[in-house]
Design a protein around this nucleic acid. Structure first.
Lengths: 84, 84
DNA sequence: AACTATACCGGTATATCTATTGGTATAGAG
DNA sequence: CTCTATACCAATAGATATACCGGTATAGTT
């Protein structure tokens, strides 16, 4: 095996992470936050909707910085497969 | 443009992150930590040597958990292009 | 010397990320 | 109604992540 496809649990985890980020964004627009974090609006939208299930560490770090939330907090609350 | 190649700064940032992780591993073997974090030893070795410059968020989160270090701490100390 | 453990490296292969484009839909402003 | 802003989605494409393999090197052991 070379690189196994993402498991359903990993996809759920990604969806959960996305929900937390969207919650933190609040009323601000996707474009505003994406620009501030140095990524395209489409990429942020995909992360928030869970369509990018395992985003890069520095991508999430940049978002957490803009949104003023803790990475440790994000990781703790995303890890369990229990979505909501 | 579709996905620009990693910049030299991004590669330096990856090398720096790798150094921090290796430092945190201390005397423990790559195989031991990789197994505990649920990844292959080859992947951990590449992350530590900076050959994987933008690893996945959950990959680093699993490592930080095993190594008992803070993700926010890691991100803060990796972000500037100034390596050491 | 032979054996073991650890780590490094290059090559290969598949899955995923990230960006762009173009289209669709909705809601509010004029 | 038209225009604008925002968000959603599918398709495309290049670059990277992750895993496995075989080989190499070094140090410590027996």
């Amino acid at each position: 095996m070379v690189r196994p496809p993402l498991t359903p649990e990993e996809r759920l985890r990604g969806e959960h992470l996305g929900r937390l980020l969207r919650q933190a964004r609040g009323e601000r627009s996707i474009a505003e936050i994406a620009t501030a974090a140095g990524m395209s609006a489409e990429t942020l939208r995909k992360i928030e909707t869970g369509r990018i299930a395992t985003p890069a560490f520095f991508t999430i770090a940049a978002l957490a910085d803009v949104l003023e939330i803790s990475l440790d907090h994000l990781a703790e609350r995303s890890s369990p497969a229990i979505p909501s």
